[in-house]
């Protein structure tokens, strides 16, 4: 088994898994029927991508593991998503801010991943780009609406961006496995995306009449499995059935 490739795939897929799970929490509780439907839709897209990645990862392990084993039966320290996506749905501004800060990265990332010399990853990227372009349009539009809406919404959106900013830098970190996979022409060198990311985000924030935070204090750890306190609760829900009723078919 190519252990580095396996780890690399989890590094991509776990982001979508955890973000999809967060969005799933909101289903039925959105500020309007339209946003409710849209957030559920994004969640559905992300879980669809997750399944493709994990099915591929499961094949690579060659030990009969299933997509659900990978999704639901790892320990907390074995999840390698970035800290950004596990942040809670504090309010709609946070939900949108988290989505926006991730979507801009996600789209840049997939654009590169489609050039991967791993045909499976490239195919998943091609399929996902269409979906993620929509996600980015949706979240950017809402950042603009909330930023340039009322005084209250402006403040809330600014607070969310400020609060989440500390988790953006981690998107451009590389693990040892990442570096090896990049050198093999399979992975994306995320350090090259950083500049474009921050300039794109700044441009959109400016359009939304919001300030780009200046803070240079960043948090990291997710990619090494060191998470915020929020993740454990999310995993308790995610894993509940598989843990309570082990080895069953659903």
């Amino acid at each position: 088994m190519n252990n580095n490739l396996y780890k690399y795939i989890l590094g991509i897929a776990d982001n979508s898994l955890i973000l999809g799970q967060r969005l799933g929490e909101l289903c039925g509780h959105g500020p309007s029927l339209e946003t409710d439907i849209a957030c559920t839709n994004i969640s559905l897209d992300l879980f669809g991508q997750v399944r493709s990645y994990y099915q591929y990862a499961a094949k690579i392990t060659g030990n009969g593991k299933s997509e659900d084993d990978i999704a639901m039966l790892r320990k907390e320290r074995e999840y390698v998503n970035v800290l950004l996506v596990e942040q809670p749905n504090t309010d709609f501004a946070y939900t949108i801010g988290r989505q926006f800060l991730f979507d801009v990265y996600h789209l840049l990332f997939l654009n590169e991943l489609q050039k991967s010399n791993d045909l499976m990853l490239s195919a998943i990227a091609v399929k996902s780009i269409k979906e993620v372009s929509y996600h980015q349009r949706f979240s950017s539009d809402w950042v603009k609406r909330l930023g340039d809406g009322t005084a209250e919404s402006h403040q809330k959106m600014q607070d969310a961006i400020d609060g989440l900013w500390t988790y953006t830098d981690e998107l451009f970190h590389q693990t040892d496995a990442d570096k090896i996979i990049v050198s093999e022409g399979i992975g994306v060198d995320v350090t090259n995306l950083k500049e474009t990311y921050y300039s794109k985000v700044s441009e959109l924030l400016q359009e939304a009449t919001l300030k780009t935070p200046e803070s240079k204090w960043f948090q990291k750890g997710g990619k090494e499995g060191i998470h915020t306190e929020h993740l454990g609760y999310l995993l308790s829900d995610l894993q509940y059935m598989q843990r309570t009723y082990p080895n069953m078919e659903w």
């Binding site: 559905l44 879980f47 997750v50 994990y54 999310l234 059935m241 598989q242 659903w250």
Partner: peptide, 29 residues
Amino acid sequence: EGNWITRAPSLRRKVALLAKVQDEAGHGL
């Protein structure tokens, strides 16, 4: 039904349940 989205026992079931609840929102609309 939304109550079980985060706890669905498999990814396949989770996706199906999300889609179902989304259909209901669509019917409402």
